[in-house]
């Protein structure tokens, strides 16, 4: 186990290094500089570039960036004067995470319940309605959902149409974000449940004369949950890391909008910082998936997790 963790950690460092390198050079390929004023005289522009070390050659900048990152210094934003990248990410993460967590709390349990009901009532009108909802709910682009909710609900003054600050502001964006996940989990749960219900051990349980609730909850339900639980870490990661569409429409200061803003304004340090942040989260999420697998399904040992 210790050796496994060590190898895993070493690989993580290599991964991060490769990601830094790839995204660093990609960002330097972007046309344009962070400074866009048409009137700024060349002399001043040169001083601006020098102020941020952008006058150095790209390999030099790369080495410098890498050295700083190793020391935990992710630099300052070019767009907003003197704002520390770490602080920006920490601040932006909270709203994204709050909305993401709410969306998860709404969507996952509801999706599981709906999927289960549909599976148990297979072939009935309820099943068709649930499947229809799940498929369409997944297919509507999130910005249409967000705009429609804003128009229909906030337009009537029931909830604030945008901005951030109170609990009321959390509700609409969370629902908008939750819809497609709700649909996704309903579908997933339905098909997992159907698969489990067709397994031999369920037949065995039936023939043993176990009652239906016991079969459903003790055997079918628990086993259908395995793939859902193991998929959760990555889904949670994507959910709390912010949806740029939802954040933009509801004007929420989250990671998603920050990412787009930083790339479009050539705010290299912030874009790089965010890329790294996402990468670290992703690697940690994968690690948790591996551990979860070994917990929920003892046949899979941690050491064999990569296969």
């Amino acid at each position: 186990m210790g050796k496994y963790l060590l190898r895993r950690f070493a690989f993580m460092i290599i991964t991060l290094w490769v990601i830094i390198t790839i995204s660093f050079f990609f960002m330097k390929l972007l046309p344009g500089t962070p400074f866009d004023d048409e009137r700024i005289p060349e002399a001043v522009l040169e001083n601006m570039m020098a102020q941020y070390g952008l006058d150095k050659s790209i390999p030099e900048q790369y080495v410098l960036y890498l050295t700083n990152v190793v020391q935990g210094d992710f630099g300052v934003s070019y767009r907003i004067k003197n704002r520390d990248v770490t602080t920006i990410i920490a601040e932006k993460f909270a709203p994204s995470a709050i909305i993401g967590i709410h969306a998860l709390i709404i969507s996952v349990p509801l999706g599981i319940i709906l999927g289960m009901i549909a599976a148990l009532r297979r072939g009935t009108a309820i099943d068709y309605a649930a499947v229809g909802f799940a498929v369409i709910g997944f297919a509507i682009p999130s910005f249409v959902v967000a705009v429609a909710l804003q128009y229909l609900i906030a337009g009537n003054g029931l909830l604030p149409s945008a901005l951030w600050g109170t609990y009321k502001h959390v509700i609409l964006p969370s629902i908008a974000l939750a819809l497609s996940m709700f649909a996704y989990y309903a579908r997933m749960m339905r098909s997992e449940m159907l698969e489990v219900l067709g397994q031999d051990y369920i037949k065995t349980a039936k023939s043993k004369g176990l009652s239906r609730p016991v079969i459903i909850f003790k055997h079918a339900f628990r086993n259908s949950l395995i793939p859902i639980i193991t998929s959760l870490p990555v889904v949670i990661l994507f959910t709390i890391s912010g949806s740029l569409v939802i954040e933009q429409i509801y004007s929420i200061p989250g990671l998603g909008t920050e990412l787009v803003k930083s790339v479009l304004s050539r705010d290299y340090t912030v874009s790089m910082g965010l890329t790294l942040f996402y990468a670290v989260m992703y690697i940690v999420a994968l690690f948790i998936v591996d551990i979860l697998y070994s917990v929920v399904d003892p046949r899979i040992r941690v050491a064999g997790g990569s296969e």
């Binding site: 990601i19 790339v263 874009s271 990468a279």
Partner: peptide
């Protein structure tokens, strides 16, 4: 590694 970089970026 590739998958570690967010698609949107």
């Amino acid at each position: 590694i590739i998958v570690g970089i967010p698609n949107i970026i």
